[in-house]
Amino acid sequence: MKRAAVILSSALLQSGCGGVQSALNAQGPSAAALKALIIVIVAVCVVVWIAVMIVLVAALLRRRDARAVPDHVLHRPVMAAVAATVVVVAALTVVSFQATRRLAPDENAAVTIRVRAQQWWWQFDYEDADPARAFRTANEIHVPVGKTVRVTLESADVIHSFWVPSLAGKQDLIPGRHNVLTFRADRPGIYRGQCAEFCGLQHAHMAFLVIAEEPEAYDRWVQMQRAGAVEPENPEASAGKTVFMTRQCAACHTIRGTQATGTTGPDLTHVGGRRTIAAGLLENTRGSIAAWIADPQTLKPGNNMPLVPLPAEELRQVSAYMEGLK
């Protein structure tokens, strides 16, 4: 099976060095602040370590004469070192505290997204004062470049953790609690995020993409998402639609504008428009969709989508339908 390599490598190009999911590849103010902090603290600690090593080596290799060294000559240097330690850790504490203050969540956000994590995929609700303008999607969010995004974090089952290293530090999603995280993307790009808290069998395959776009592009995407599903334009796809509605699919998946209103699985209204499927597992092509539907349990063992046996014919049709849902 082919992977999302294409997109991801292109993302790599856009986002410069450091890979697609790296704390060292900061693409937004909070990630940048964190990167700066990391560099400062690491630098200080490296200096401390080198200092200790110098003393250690000197202590081991220094030329010794007959006279024994009495304790009292050692008091002053040791006291000095302890004092230095106190100063350094105090300084580090202050630095850390300042950074914490700077990173406090920012209230006036342009976009608010309700994240609902579940084993092992992400549900995203774009909120809006007017319910008609709100919409739901899964495993992929788009955000406007240069605008503050506010994500409210909830879990449907166990504890997960929302982490897009290139944009911000992580924050847990805990059943019965509500957390908030705000971030901003400064440059357009595709930033990979991944669940960071062990959440069971497929914790390793619980990724998502954050796609930062120029405001216009973003608005176009929003318009597109608000709309219900497009009607299949070729007979194969419409056959696929019937399959989808008549088989169990509709029991678990919602496709807005059709009678499919299940909620156990991701909203598929615009699944064809996403770059990956099954929480970043596969690049989104007709082939991979078919592969997924044909046997989700081999591709992502233990995930909550059962194998729905379909004749090859229907499988092709339903995949065509999925792919068409741009």
Binding site: A23, A33, L34, L37, I38, I41, L92, V95, S96, A99, T100, L103, S161, P165, A168, G169, K170, Q171, A196, E197, F198
Partner: peptide, 10 residues
């Protein structure tokens, strides 16, 4: 450090 840990925790 709380913010440092936000990146490297887990």
């Amino acid at each position: 450090s709380v913010p440092f840990d936000a990146q490297v925790h887990d």
